[in-house]
Write a protein that binds this DNA or RNA. Structure first.
Lengths: 199, 199
DNA sequence: GTCTATAAGAAGATAGAC
DNA sequence: GTCTATCTTCTTATAGAC
């Protein structure tokens, strides 16, 4: 179906190049469809972009729920949560760039609809750590801060690794998404548990 | 002087709105100067942007050097380093958005010249933690990973706080840059020391 | 539902007068 | 060193034929 096809290709283009850098002309060319056809299915460029974002967020939340309702021992559950989260990025690594861009715009291109989805992600994070033997000062932590630590570290390190520059001292993964994300995974799990758990 | 004026206003516009969203027409209008005048001083839009970025990075590294060459006790030195780093953002909060955007583009809009400046920042971070009583497994840490944790957490949390949405459970600072960054500062210092230092 | 054709405007950039 | 005027190309978007 044409509409679905447009949405898939648009998702790819927007996540890779960003909103401004994707023109309706280029998108139509890539789709080998007439530009007017895109406008038949979508009101304008903005609403096409909205559908892309919504589609991406929703498709990433399913597996995390399963992990959190499991009966794993607390630390194992936390590890499984981070792993599932990293897996979602492995499945669609382009969301790193999209997420960084939307953060940079303070949500200007996104509409209110996504708020409950983000709040849901925060709730998942809370569930992932609530059973851990937390130090006293981490029991009433702002979850958006911890979420920023997780998301920020992953996105930022991924961006370092994917940049066109060769930085001295940066671990060598040759732009292999899987290896980069596994490395980040292991670091984050140890780091967070070392910081917030009682000995 | 006109050239300096152009650079200052361009810095402001680019950091707030991003490369694509700033047109030479709008920039000329804001400057109350003719567009051709900008082209007299700068070869094209790209090279104007390069000068903006370089200017921003260099101006942020001076005070950090002073902290690191001081004779403070290790933990105090680390705290002073983070504080100085946060102060640099307080001075120009717009670099948060710029940094997020350039990360999202994997450096596509930036040229090779900035590599040594970023490597210098990594070296500063290494100096800030090298004297700490580190746990064995954090003695050979990839500094880009720790840098990503610091930078990523700050940027991401700042973006949450500055976004146009009201998220449930997000600490209330009413878009006050100073308070947001102080809060992030305290969290990061405790969190990192708790994670990487011997008890 | 998909196409052709085209509108209307904004983009980056430059030639040449003053 | 700053201006006016203009070029070319690209942008989003739509009217109307098939």
């Amino acid at each position: 179906m044409t509409k679905e096809n447009i949405l898939n290709v648009a998702t790819n283009e927007f996540t890779i190049y960003g909103y401004d850098a994707v023109s309706m002309n280029k998108l139509a060319a890539k789709l080998e469809v007439n530009k007017a056809t895109i406008y038949y299915h979508f009101k304008d460029k903005q609403s096409l972009y909205q559908e892309v974002i919504k589609h991406l967020i929703i498709s990433n939340q399913e597996n995390i729920q399963n992990v959190l309702s499991s009966s794993l021992e607390p630390k194992e559950k936390f590890k499984a949560y981070i792993k599932e989260y990293i897996q979602a990025i492995k499945n669609k690594p382009q969301i790193v760039a999209l997420s960084l861009r939307e953060m940079a715009n303070y949500g200007a291109n996104v509409d209110e609809q996504i708020v409950p989805y983000i709040e849901q992600e925060i709730e998942y994070l809370r569930l992932a750590i609530v059973e851990l033997p937390l130090k006293e000062n981490y029991k009433s932590l702002d979850m958006y801060l911890l979420k920023s630590l997780v998301l920020g570290t992953i996105n930022n390190y991924y961006a370092f690794q994917m940049s066109k520059f060769d930085f001295q001292g940066l671990s060598q993964f040759n732009k292999n998404s899987g290896e980069i994300l596994d490395f980040t995974n292991d670091f984050l799990v140890d780091f967070i548990l070392d910081a917030i758990c009682e000995d």
